[in-house]
């Protein structure tokens, strides 16, 4: 199975509020909030760490879930976030301009 890499879209506006991300789409200013799992994906989307590692290191340690099931759910979620242009996804690592932006509080 090929690796999936995720990077935050630099065109969105993003801020963490009480542990959950507020994201405003750069495409049409639609506002989203990410739940805790999606927030973990967003915060881990450095363009360099593959999704399966993020799931193993960040999601399975946080929530009691089967790794295979968690990976499948995470991939679905990553693709959905990519469809809203919140995340960029690729089978290759994605260089990022500012990997820590939007991670306050």
């Amino acid at each position: 199975m090929s690796k999936l890499y995720m990077a935050r879209n630099p065109r969105v506006a993003a801020r963490s509020l009480d542990g959950e991300m507020m994201i405003m789409s750069g495409r049409d200013s639609t506002l989203f909030t990410l739940n805790k799992t999606a927030t973990i994906l967003w915060q881990s989307a450095d363009g360099a760490t593959p999704l399966d590692e993020i799931v193993k290191l960040r999601i399975c340690t946080e929530f009691e879930v089967e790794p295979a099931e968690a990976l499948q759910d995470a991939e679905t979620l990553a693709r959905e976030l990519a469809s809203h242009e919140i995340l960029q996804i690729s089978e290759e690592p994605i260089p990022q301009r500012n990997p820590t932006a939007g991670e306050s509080r």
């Binding site: 969105v12 506006a13 801020r15 405003m24 500012n98 932006a101």
Partner: peptide
């Protein structure tokens, strides 16, 4: 503001 600090401007 936008690209380094990701504010909604």
């Amino acid at each position: 503001a936008r690209l380094e600090r990701q504010f909604c401007v």
